[in-house]
Amino acid sequence: MKRVLLFATGVDERLPLALRERYLAFSERERSEILKEVGCSAFVLLETCQRLEVYGTAEESLRREDLLQRLFPLPDPYRASVFYLENADAVRRLFRIATGLESALRGEVHILGQLKRAWEKAHQNGHTGKLLNVLFQDALRVGKKVQRSLHRERTLRSFGSLVAEVLEEFLGSLEGKNICILGWGTLGRSIAGTLLSRKAGTIFVFSRHLHHIPQEKPFVAIAEKSALKEVFAQSHAVVCASGSARYSLAPEYLNEAIALPQVLIDLALPRAIDPVLTQGRKLLDLETFLGLARERTLPFVQESEHLEALITEEVERFLRKWRGFQADPVIRNIALCFEETFSEARGAIVQACNHDEQELLLLRRIEWVRRKLFRKTAEQVRRFFEEER
């Protein structure tokens, strides 16, 4: 029976922003082809503003060095930002990400949605197997469990909160201040929700999906770049929350000179605002924000020990479940033996019985015995594999 290898590899926020932008040029199709060529049988690509990671399964023949060199062809000084983990360590990594403990903004709430979408996309494309499906389902369950247990008032929970906090430092109170948000994804909606709670003025939203944007005040939906000049003239700050080139603010994308507000926050990857346009203005990019998140997130004092113990317990639970998967081929062989044996018994009953009613009762009885005996045997086999170290 072949052993299955579970692995995790990727780069995170330690890699400079300019290099992380370079890897966004790799299409998902290219990454998928690389993974298949090096021996990966199933995989999920997790791509966020902070990281690019791969969770996969393979036989022992996985060409690890080939995988790392082709997926992350970094110069030597930056090789340290690439990690590679196997089995229990890979499971722990995913569970820590699901709980927000590996995020710059510790305990963040949006990572669960990103995990779920990454897994669903891979599943729909036929890239996952049983092991990865169970792993990601468990990770989502653990993440929700931890979120419920955290003391929310002790931690900064979302980038939307951090954006509002930084804007208040530059603009003072946000009450009555007009803010323009470029992009209406998860991050854009989080920022808008925080601005609403702080009684911001008009919230301009530039997006190609206007039907998703609230129609009531203070929201104003914008779809054409030609309207940005007037919008920027009325705004106190611009926040870029989408990495799509369609929203990029660069001279070559703008038909005429536009006066930008004094405060610019660019959370997009790749970056959305060309530095050429920001002379004399305050620009905070994603790298700056990740640094602020690490500085301002209150440390988990009482929670840390509890969370680490919870994650350790959940990793062990998953490993027991994984060992149980190894019983499946054995159980299938046992099922075949059972079917052959009871098929012979049913044939003997048919030949021996002269009365249809008696024959039917015996056949029903032997079918009941077959189901009960097989169920108990399968339970014992699975328990043996789960407890095996």
Rank of each mutant, 00 (worst) to 15 (best):
L187M: 03
I179F: 04
H123N: 10
K177P: 01
V301F: 12
N125L: 13
Q302I: 11
L298I: 11
V54I: 12
R364L: 11
H306Q: 14
F385M: 05
K36R: 15
L290S: 09
L196P: 03
R281K: 11
K144A: 08
N133K: 08
A118L: 00
T9N: 07
E340D: 11
S235N: 05
E33F: 10
E295T: 05
F7N: 04
L156R: 06
A335T: 14
P73F: 02
K121P: 08
C40Y: 03
L319W: 08
F385Y: 14
T48Q: 04
R64N: 02
G39P: 00
Q234P: 08
L363N: 07
V276P: 08
T48W: 00
T99L: 00
N354Y: 08
R389T: 11
G56R: 03
D356L: 09
K321H: 15
L249S: 06
S190K: 09
A233N: 11
V276Y: 10
N354E: 12
R346N: 06
H236C: 05
G107P: 02
F26W: 09
R22Q: 10
V276T: 15
F204N: 09
V44N: 02
A104Q: 13
H212I: 10
R93D: 12
L286Y: 07
A233D: 09
S41C: 09
F342A: 05
A352M: 06
A164G: 14
E60H: 12
R281F: 01
K36Y: 05
N87R: 08
V238D: 04
